[in-house]
Amino acid sequence: MKLRRSMLFLPGANAAMLSTAFVFKPDSIMFDLEDAVSLREKDAARMLVFHALRLPVYREMETVVRINPLSTPFGLKDLEAVVRAGVDVVRLPKTDTADDVHVLEAHVERIERECGREIGSTKLMAAIESASGVVNAVAIACSSPRLIGIALAGFDYVMDMQTERGDGTELFYARCAVLHAARYAKIDAFDVVFSDVNDDEGFLKEVDLIKRMGFDGKSLINPRQIDLLHNAYAPTQEEVDYASRVVAAAEAGERQGLGVVSLNGKMIDAPVIGHARVVLRRASASGVRQ
């Protein structure tokens, strides 16, 4: 299982950021061809991202590209370029229904065939940005075996809901719905970006909330937020110790072919073991919480 706590947005038209962003080491790096790119630079950004994806430094990390919606003149051109360039994950914006994913999937498969890429090797991610997307979240989350996760995108969503970003109340239902859909489909769930890059306190408060809700991670727009987020997701020493014992007990139980795993005389269920494994992965990625 791949750890996806931080997904760093990079504007696709910015040569300097594309040339250096790998040093920040987010769990996934996301090149944006959509909102961060002006209409005039759509073609230029597509070309830059195509080349960036082929750089060895980006082959070593998970790459995501947010393409333009397929309903625009840019979406399909973006897809043609990035699937051929070897992107790991295509992020579809403004996903309203499962059909949106099906259409995308069909194009991806065709391009994979055309360029000789292994069928199914291009993963997908759907961003939910409307009431329709939230209501259809379960169908969207279950729409394709290529889906590795669904993400809530706050800005368009609150507009669609005729409200605005505030203390989080406005996102409450959507967060719950997206999260449940993801867990039901056994894929990852990503929270919205936190746009005030100077408000560390507000950022950490939001991270604390979404972590407790159960989100796997969050989209980020500033590299400075990566370490803050990773640290917030890092378990405490106590949690690590407990998780180690749970996992050791589970492995022992497996070796002995026992149907039931126990620790200190108490039975441990599969979800507990699963969570313990996540805790250990987070710890091995960025240590214990500071």
Binding site: A15, L18, S19, A44, M47, L48, H51, R54, L55
Partner: peptide
Amino acid sequence: LDCVVAARVQT
């Protein structure tokens, strides 16, 4: 970087 040179020339 080389890849940026290539991208810009192609664009």
